[in-house]
């Protein structure tokens, strides 16, 4: 995945059973963002792989004041890349459950 300067990782072990996963997002390289992030924390949130889109979460983070609206695309892309990897792993490791 492209280095967006924003890191997204699983916040809990993924057993492939739940459609909702916990993710943690933090800024590794603020210079890659157009706006200034609110603070230097890791933001933990849940994401429904079946019902939600990375754009939904990115929009809510912006509305909650964590990021400037000009960084919507980079936040959404960072989440999308991680979600794609999680789904790829699920299909590979637990194909029967899919």
């Amino acid at each position: 995945a492209e280095d967006t300067g924003v890191r997204v990782e699983l916040a809990e072990e993924d057993h492939g059973r739940k459609s909702t996963i916990a993710l943690r997002l933090w800024v590794e390289d603020p210079k890659k963002l157009k706006g200034k992030p609110k603070d230097n924390g890791a933001i933990e949130f849940t994401f429904d792989l079946e019902k939600e889109t990375p754009e939904d979460v990115a929009q809510e983070m912006i509305e909650s004041g964590f990021f400037h609206e000009s960084d919507m695309k980079i936040i959404a892309k960072s989440i999308r890349d991680r979600v794609a990897l999680i789904q790829w792993r699920r299909e590979r490791i637990w194909p029967v459950l899919q």
């Binding site: 890191r7 933090w26 590794e28 390289d29 210079k31 603070d39 230097n40 924390g41 890791a42 933001i43 933990e44 949130f45 849940t46 979460v57 809510e60 983070m61 509305e63 909650s64 004041g65 964590f66």
Partner: peptide, 27 residues
């Protein structure tokens, strides 16, 4: 506690915690 919780109007919870130094990229 150093955790901060922000609830968006759509209901999603964001829990903010400090990033360990080891996870931050050195510039």
């Amino acid at each position: 506690s150093s955790l901060t919780q922000v609830v968006h109007s759509a209901g999603r919870r964001f829990i903010v915690s400090p990033v360990p130094e080891s996870r931050l990229r050195e510039s």
